[in-house]
Simulated assay, not measured.
Amino acid sequence: MSVQIRRVTTTRAGGQSVAPFDTFNLGDHVGDDPLAVAANRARLADRIGLAPERVIWMNQVHGDSVATVDGPRAEAVDGVDALVTTTAGLALAVITADCVPVLLGDARAGVIGAAHAGRVGAAAGVVARTVEAMVAAGARPADISAFLGPAVSGANYEVPAQMADEVESALPGSRVTTPSGTPGLDLRAGIAAQLRSLGVGAVDIDPRCTVADPTLFSHRRDGTAAGGTGRLASLVWMQ
């Protein structure tokens, strides 16, 4: 019998953090008041109907390591950028402020995964490693559905030509031309192409750009030497 897979992505609204992290910052590594972050995380857990320890966080490092989790935990998983579980009622959380949150689920097999895919991690293959870990746990690529959450769009992600070429070589479909005619990256396009090449049956992409949408946190837009920005959270869980 298949399970129900739930996915959610937050915005900036509804939390206790003050500027420049206003208001629903869920990142605990950006200089915000730890009490405000804890309150925001507790509120998120409550709104999705789970105890706080059943929301599994990562201390992300822009790599391609994947951890499999099977129960509640009070501390974040260190040194990984993706999580996989077969346990219902555990929410896997990704925090981002321009990178791509990738939420995966095989409802028939009862396996979910969540990946933090920034430029470095996406090019290194973190999404492919996550799919591999899900398959090892019993998932079938054709039964996996994927959701790519809000992230910087190709129009707002200008990079040097050499960087664009390097990422394109590792993640075909990523290189774009910005409206001003300069090289750019659309990581979600590259990740979507990669997922389809792996046999993933359904890929949906949130159209929102973190840089262009003021209701979302964006490090590229707001994270300067003079200040910082908060982090969104994208979660996937099974009921």
Rank of each mutant, 00 (worst) to 15 (best):
W57E: 06
G173W: 01
A136P: 03
A170N: 11
V152E: 03
T224Y: 06
A146D: 08
W237I: 10
G230I: 07
A226K: 13
A51F: 03
A225N: 09
I144P: 01
R41G: 03
A122F: 06
D222Q: 10
D98N: 12
D64V: 09
E166S: 11
V80F: 06
D33G: 06
R54H: 14
A193P: 04
F217R: 10
A82V: 05
I95Y: 01
V127I: 05
A19V: 14
S65E: 15
T86F: 04
A225E: 00
N156Y: 02
V211E: 13
T229F: 03
D28L: 06
V80G: 10
V211T: 11
V102H: 02
A74Q: 14
G149W: 03
G49W: 05
A146P: 01
L104E: 01
R41E: 03
R119N: 10
P179M: 11
L216S: 06
A128I: 05
I112W: 00
A39C: 05
A133N: 07
A170Y: 01
G79S: 14
G149R: 01
V18R: 14
S2V: 14
A123H: 04
D213H: 06
P34C: 03
A133G: 05
P101R: 05
Q16P: 00
G125H: 09
D46P: 01
E132P: 00
A170M: 04
S197C: 06
A42G: 15
D106E: 06
D213W: 01
I144L: 04
A225C: 07
T177S: 14
D70V: 12
A38I: 05
G27M: 02
P172G: 10
A114Q: 02
R231H: 14
R129D: 01
L185E: 06
T11H: 02
A139H: 11
M238V: 11
G228C: 04
E158Q: 13
I95M: 11
M1L: 12
D165A: 15
G110C: 10
V3F: 12
A91G: 07
A39I: 00
T23F: 05
L185Y: 09
V152T: 05
N156F: 04
A124G: 07
S218N: 05
L171G: 06
G118H: 08
T87K: 14
L50W: 08
F147A: 07
D143S: 10
G118I: 07
Q162Y: 11
I112C: 13
R54W: 08
V120F: 14
D81H: 04
